[in-house]
Amino acid sequence: MEIVTKYFTEFTDKQLQQLQQLQALYTDWNEKINVISRKDIDSLYEKHVLHSLSIAAIFDFNDGAKILDLGTGGGFPGIPLAIFFPEVHFHLVDSIAKKLKVVQAIAGELGLTNVTTQHARVEDIKNRKFDYVVSRAVAPLKDLWQWCRPLIATQPSQPLNHAPGLICLKGGDLNLEIQESGTKPKIVDITGLYSEDYFKEKFIIYVTR
């Protein structure tokens, strides 16, 4: 928990309480349904919460913005971002129902009224538009952009601080992956945000139309 407040300080008491609850909730649920690597559960705040919040360090989402978390798994980056941005709506989608069961339970325990979930593959999401799609290590950038582009609003419902687009967390050498995607993303090196060794070669990739 301290590793989060080391970098983010402007939390309300409610947000701090929600963040503090995450360790016990994920530890309990992970024993029933494995959504986080067992070796990572003790590093939940560094490897999952802080990593997710790197998006919040760069993007100031407007109140009322609509965000799709594609392939949310155990709720990352969606759950930490929903705590950070209580006036932003997050729709967390995954093709594995048991993972969404965990996400729904944790969102309920935290009292996150700005989170909805859907058991679906991305191609099954119809007649909906989002200001942003966020994702963490779900698929190659080429596939992510192909899936997400039809879901990103061309005309946002309100003025936004950042152009609508895809925001994904990725690691390693991304040169070939970006080249094959045909996109020209903005790239943020997370080591410019956090000093921990875990974040070496981890990046935020931001693609707009």
Rank of each mutant, 00 (worst) to 15 (best):
K186H: 10
L81A: 04
F130P: 05
S135Y: 03
W147F: 09
G64S: 09
S95C: 05
K170E: 08
I79S: 12
I83L: 06
L160W: 10
P156L: 10
C148I: 01
I96A: 10
A56E: 05
A107E: 13
E180A: 06
A57G: 15
R121N: 08
R136D: 00
Y132C: 14
K142G: 03
E109D: 15
T117I: 15
I190G: 06
N175G: 00
T72M: 06
L68W: 04
D189G: 08
F61S: 00
V115W: 07
D94W: 04
Y132I: 03
P159M: 01
F84W: 15
K126D: 13
N175M: 11
L169A: 08
G108R: 11
Q158E: 07
I106S: 10
K98C: 09
A153D: 02
W147M: 04
G172H: 12
A82G: 09
D69Y: 08
A97W: 00
P86K: 03
K66C: 14
G71L: 12
K170F: 11
K98T: 14
L160Q: 05
L112M: 05
E123P: 07
V138S: 07
E180R: 01
F61V: 01
D189W: 04
L151T: 10
Q118H: 15
S181V: 03
G172P: 11
V115E: 06
N127D: 15
N114P: 12
D60P: 00
K126H: 14
N161I: 00
I79W: 12
D94N: 13
H89M: 08
Q158V: 11
L92D: 03
I79Y: 14
L151I: 10
I96R: 06
I152Y: 03
S135A: 14
Q179F: 11
G73M: 02
R128F: 09
I178E: 09
P150Y: 03
P140D: 08
K66D: 13
V133Y: 02
F61C: 00
L193M: 15
G73T: 03
F90S: 00
C168P: 06
V102R: 04
A82E: 14
V88G: 05
L68N: 04
V102I: 14
A163D: 02
G192E: 13
A153N: 09
F90G: 00
L70S: 05
K101V: 06
R149I: 04
F59W: 07
T113H: 14
N114A: 06
S181D: 08
D60W: 01
V115I: 15
P185M: 02
W145A: 11
P77H: 12
G182H: 04
L112V: 13
H119M: 08
I96K: 13
F76W: 09
L174Q: 09
L141A: 10
A139E: 07
A97R: 13
C148W: 03
F84S: 02
L100V: 07
A163S: 11
V133Q: 01
P140E: 04
D189A: 09
D173P: 08
I96N: 11
V115S: 10
L166A: 08
L141C: 03
I83H: 00
L110F: 11
G75M: 09
R136H: 07
V102Q: 09
